[in-house]
Every structure is written in C-alpha cells, then in structure tokens.
Nucleic acid binder design. Structure first.
Lengths: 362, 362
DNA sequence: AATTAGCACTCAAAGGTTGAGAGTGCCAAC
DNA sequence: GTTGGCACTCTCAACCTTTGAGTGCTAATT
C-alpha cells in the first residue's frame, strides 16, 4: 500500500473540499471535481486505503470522509500550495497597517483586532516577556506634595508614575533621591531590590517618610511587569460563525480558555517543530497540549516588535481551517508589522519616530 | 381591573420564579410556592388579568406565563426587595478589590474582569472621556539622539514618549524646547494646536529638523486620546452559559455588538431616567436603543474614578436577570472602587499612593 | 492488473404520528 | 370572591418510516 502521487492528489482534493463545505466528502464529489478523470469506484478504493493509513476518518459507515489531524498535517507540510494573496488583499492589509500606524497606537489590542479582522477568525497577539533593567531614573518635582517618577528601561520603553504625597517634601530631597536611585538601582534586576537595600538607601538619603520605599516599589513593579509578557484576544465572537462551534458547550469551552491571559501566554511556549515556513507555525488539533484545543487549530506568525522584542500574532479556529490562506495572511501581516516597528528604518518621515515611543496610553 | 396588592404579590412570585428557572411559570406552581394560600384557579384568573394589562406574556396558549419587559420594569422599580449581600459575598468582593489594589493596576481591563467574575455575567467597564489640557511639559535629555517627553495632564495623569532621532541634537536645544512648550502649549485644548502655532514655535526655537512638530504631534495625540473615553468588555463567554443564548446566532449578534468598543461607549450615554437607586441604572430589553440588545438587559453602576473622572461598571445579560442580586453587587463593587480610587483618603498607608499614579502599563 | 459499472447494504437526517403532560379558560358550585 | 372540575390546546419527546447519500464488494471491461 504505497503512497502514490495519485493518493496525494485525492487527499488534497478531499481536504480542500472539506475546508470549504464542512461536510464529509464523498467519492462521487471527488470524481467529479478533482479533474483526475477517475470514476467514483476508483476513488472509493483509494479512499478506503487512505482511511486505513490514517489520513482520513469516517464519521460513520455510510458517510463521506473527513480529514484526520494526520491528514491535515501532511496537507500543511507537503500538499497545500502557497496561497497567493490577491492584490486587493495585500492592499487591504497595507491600508489597515498604515491606518494603525498613523494613529500611532500599535498596541497589543490593536494588533490583535487587526489580525482578527483580516482573517475572520479569533486572533491573538502576544509579546514575549522582555526582562528589563532600569537604565535611568528621573524624578520630576511638581510641587511640594507632588512629583513624577520616570524610568527609562533597558528595553527602550518608558514608565512613569505620578506621586501625590500626604506631606511636604523639598525639591532638594527629590533631587537627592533621584541621584541616589540612579546610582543604586539602575542596571539591576528585580530580585536585587531587597529590603536590605531599601533600608540602606533610606538611611543614606535621610528619608524618614517612606519615600524611598515608594520609589523602590515602583521600580519593583515596573521590572516585574517587564517579565510578564502580554497577550490579548480579539474577535472571539467569530468562533460562533463556524459550524463546528454551533454547540454552545463547545464554544463556551474554547472561548473561556482563550479569555484567560495565562492560557494565551502558554501558546507562545509551544514547541517549534511545527514550523511550516520561516515565521509561521501551525498546531493542528491534538498537537495542542491544551485539553480545550484538542479539536481546534492554532496558526502563529512571529514578528519583530522592535528593540529585539519578539511578538506573535495568531488565530484560533477549527481544524478545518483554511491553513493556506490564514498562513499567508498572518505572515504578510507579521512582516508588515516588523517593518513598521523596526527600530532603524522609518517608513516615511517622522511617522516612524512617533510609532517608536510607547506607553502612550492605557 | 385594578392593580390590587395581591396582583403585585403574584407578579413578583412569577418573576422570581422565572428568573430562577428560565421556564414559563404556571398557575399551579405559584399556588404552591407563593404562600398566598390561593388555589391555582384563582391565580389563573389573576394571571389572565395581568396578561391583559401587559405585565405578563404567554409564549403559546397552553404554556405558563413569562414576564414582559413592562413586568420587569415594574418589578425593578417597585416590587423587588433589595438583595442583601451575604457576608461571604462582601468579603469576596473586598478581597478581590484589595488584591487588585495591591497589584496596583486598577485599569479598565481589570475592573471589567472583576465585575464579570463577581457577577458571572459579561461585564463592561467604562471611563467617561475626560478632556484634558497639558499642565506641564518636561523633556528629559538622554543622549544626543534621544530624549523623553513627559507631559502632566490636567486630569492628573502622566503620559510619556521616548523619541529616537536620526540626527543629533544638543542638550541646550532640548532645554529650550522644553521652556518653549511649557510657555505655549500648556493649558490649551487640542484644537488650539494649529499648524500656524507650530510654525511660530518652529521659528521661535530655530528648529529646522522637525523637532517641534514631533513634540506638538505628541501633544495632539495625548489630548486627543483624553477625549476618547475607554471601554472594555470582559467575561463575554459567560453569555454562552445562559439558556437564552443557546442559539449561536443570537449569541453571536450580542457578542459582536459588545466587542465593538464604540458600542460600549454608547452605553455610557444612556438616559438617566432608568435609575433605580443612587448609582444604579437598569435598562430592560427594548429600553435599550441598540437593535442587538432588544432582548437583553443592562445594569450599570457608576463609580468615582478619582480626579473627578466618572467611571461605569455594568453587566449585560438576558432580560431574565437577577436584577436584585446584580444591582446589589455592582453597587457594592462600585462603591468599593470609588473608595479605593478616591484622591484624598488612603485606605491604608502607602497603598493609596501607589494606586493613584497611573499609566504604569500597556 | 487496473478500472469501472452495478448492486446490495448502511446509516443519519428529515418528516410524520402519537401520547403524555403541563397549562389554560370557563363554568357551576360553594 | 373563591374553588373544583372539565374540556381544550399546544409543546415536547419518543417512535417510526422514508429518503438519499455514501460505502464496499464483485464481476465485467479495458
């Protein structure tokens, strides 16, 4: 029972038909549409063998065939031909990207929404954690009860916090603290900021009112968050359009799973062997570790978020997914994002500068 | 056909039964459970009248009765008795609030999630737009190619942006610009920052490299965003647990509606006449303007987000909602939030300070 | 030896029928 | 005014039947 070229053609035809119709595919349909010029009886024989080999499954004896995860895997790895984005599609994506870029808010949430809109699946956007250190502190004295802490991190982001005090503090003190923190708290990781260190600083600065610990607390928080990674999901309702999620139970299971940020972050830790091209990875049904995704598929594309931050966009859908189209789109979006966010080159004039700064909102 | 006290008792019983069971309620059930000591026949007569008066509806002749929106409205306004939160519930809410407060990130998203978790409905968090002006600019010089813009807004938030330049600039220039912007761009609204003004500043500063427009662009963006209002939805999958959203069509319609931020923002503009207590508003079915919410209900509670910013939390659910419980919980959460976020008083020690500063992440 | 026409067989899905049960409305009696 | 009783209505679930798409196998054809 060897894997003839003809079998591959037939398998491909079945999968592509099923992707469109969501209905088990029968021999007659393939005979008619595959263009192989074979009768349904012949197809039937081949289908029986493909089933025996594990590439197809049969919901019940008198139904057509449905691709198995193994079948999809072969299809994704070998069979499917690259979907060429149409000019319109590329323009649509370019347009969306430029819009967002123009609005200057290339945040996770927007990236997710973008991916979802462009693929019509629930989409997710992930940013790998980028453990950072504080490179530089600035305390801006506003008035005797107020100052702003500004911290420039090693990952090229800026964090700030407005501090209102229930007591007065002199400008000189703020200055002093600023220097102190720049000397002692820059370049170190979160776990190095111990209570002992804080005590020492408190004594060194002569601070008796807890100012040091407020600022240190801010530092800890900022560093802590930098290690967290970010994730959002967008377009979840798209799931409900799909026949495989007609069952509210199932839809609920998957949506609940996806609405937990920790679960999303797990996706970024998926193993790499499922790479189907430079930057696209595909996880089919049981290849997902998560129980809840056992009969769903995930397609991920990596992009470069600038400042050597690694980002991921992806979609979640039924195993019956238009892998080719989705992979092509995600890949194109990811590349576009990389370009837009690249540190060095500015696509057009100052736009670049603007995108680069972050932390503008929420 | 007057609206006797007995009718009210019966209506109440029907509604409360229906809220629990989600099934049309029959005369026999009420006769048994209402404790009125009336036979089913009597109840039947009363029910017929309540139906004629428009407070009840009958899915079909031989089914029990279901409350109409008018019925719910009466219930919410007059009939329902205040749900008293149990000690456990209050503790649970307090705990969740203090957790969040401790993590210092009382952002929209977290507030929404909190409300959803505590009510088991999809929840939303809204912040009314707070048009702001910039009170103060600071430019922090990092190196000859880099500086940070920090802006303190009149609504007591701080925004920043890191600017990388493709050319060099002297520290003196940065200083000069800082002064210039503080003099000319503080205290004014977005529309006042015209190209003419930018030109003038450019000439005044001797800037030939577009620095002025970069900073002005930042100012415009910041001011623009401050007028936008924020909204998030959380816990949307909760919808799918409810029998009234068993139909994926319907679930999809509502979820899609809710996942558009603009639709959420519209909710904050709902009229006020539906207030049922100090800070809780209820919109029942057709009282919602949105087509998609015609048979859903919305409960909103306002909270004070500090710095005279107005916030809203709310839930969306079927008209058959446990209004009493939901209203009580939302109200309690909203009060807790107000307290936590109140500018003046610090619940305990420095925690307050920490919460106050914003802009820490995303 | 590979292909195909033909045929008997299988099974899910759709449609129809029936009976049970919950509920109503109305009337006559209390 | 309230209630027991009864005829009536309508949904729902269970069951049956039919239909049709699809299969696997065999025998004939190329």
């Amino acid at each position: 029972m060897k894997f003839s070229d003809r079998k591959k053609r037939i398998l491909t035809a079945i999968i592509e038909n099923y992707i469109e119709s969501a209905e088990p595919v029968g021999s007659k349909t393939i005979s008619r549409t595959s263009g192989l010029g074979l009768s349904s009886a012949t197809i039937r024989n081949e289908m029986a063998e493909l089933t025996a080999m594990g590439y197809l499954e049969q919901p019940h004896t008198s139904a057509g065939r449905v691709p198995s995860p193994k079948g999809y895997r072969l299809y994704v790895n070998e069979l499917m031909r690259k979907y060429k984005l149409s000019l319109e599609e590329m323009q649509a994506i370019n347009y969306s990207l430029s819009q967002k870029a123009h609005q200057l808010d290339m945040l996770m949430g927007n990236i997710g929404r973008l991916a979802s809109q462009l693929t019509n699946y629930p989409a997710l956007a992930l940013a790998a954690p980028t453990p950072a250190t504080i490179q530089r502190f600035d305390l801006i004295y506003i008035d005797s009860n107020t100052f702003i802490i500004v911290a420039l991190l090693s990952n090229n982001t800026v964090k700030n916090k407005l501090i209102h005090l229930p007591f007065s503090v002199e400008q000189g003190m703020v200055q002093k603290l600023s220097t102190l923190f720049n000397v002692n708290l820059t370049g170190i990781t979160e776990d190095k900021i111990t209570n002992i260190l804080i005590d020492t600083l408190e004594r060194a600065s002569g601070d008796t009112m807890g100012l040091v610990s407020v600022i240190a607390g801010f530092a800890i928080e900022v560093l802590h968050k930098s290690q967290a990674g970010e994730a959002v999901i967008a377009g979840a309702p798209n799931l409900l359009r799909l026949p495989e999620f007609r069952d509210p139970e199932k839809a609920h299971r998957v949506m609940s799973y996806l609405s937990d940020i920790n679960h999303l972050l797990e996706l970024s830790e998926l193993k790499n062997e499922n790479r189907i091209s430079d930057n696209v990875k595909v996880y089919i049904g049981p290849e997902n570790i998560a129980e809840e995704l056992q009969d769903s598929s995930v397609v991920l594309a990596g992009y470069n978020a600038g400042d050597n931050m690694q980002g991921l966009i992806g979609v979640v859908g039924p195993t019956r997914m238009d892998y080719s189209r989705v992979a092509a789109k995600l890949s194109y979006i990811a590349e576009g994002l990389s370009l837009l966010l690249a540190s060095g080159e500015a696509p057009r004039g100052f736009d670049k500068l603007m995108i680069k700064g972050d932390d503008i909102d929420e």
